[in-house]
């Protein structure tokens, strides 16, 4: 699976609302995964000063990430493949 980062700018998004969105994304990924399609929500980062929210997913392909976010009704501006370097 590859990592994908979903970028969105949503004015006024609060941590509490992000909690609601997170639940929706987890549930959406759970429902749409399976039948050979693999996707997992990993985490989100909110940058309040920019109204910007970055969400990390692990998935087989980009379209699946898009569908999960659309199903969660959480709009986005881009989905890009990403690489993470974890402290060795």
């Amino acid at each position: 699976m590859s990592l994908f980062i979903v970028d969105r700018i949503i004015p006024g998004l609060t941590v509490q609302q992000l909690g609601i969105a997170q639940h929706a994304m987890v549930e959406s990924a759970r429902r749409l995964g399976g039948n050979g399609a693999r996707i997992r929500y990993i985490r989100s980062t909110l940058i309040p000063g920019q109204s910007r929210c970055l969400c990390l997913f692990e998935a087989d392909h980009r379209n699946l990430v898009r569908t999960v976010n659309e199903t969660a009704q959480f709009p986005f501006s881009s989905i890009d493949e990403a690489v993470e370097l974890i402290t060795p």
Binding site: I10, P11, G12, L13, Q17, I20, A21, A24
Partner: peptide
Amino acid sequence: QSARWLVATLA
């Protein structure tokens, strides 16, 4: 009418 997250507005 706003750019807020619609689901939050609805809720």
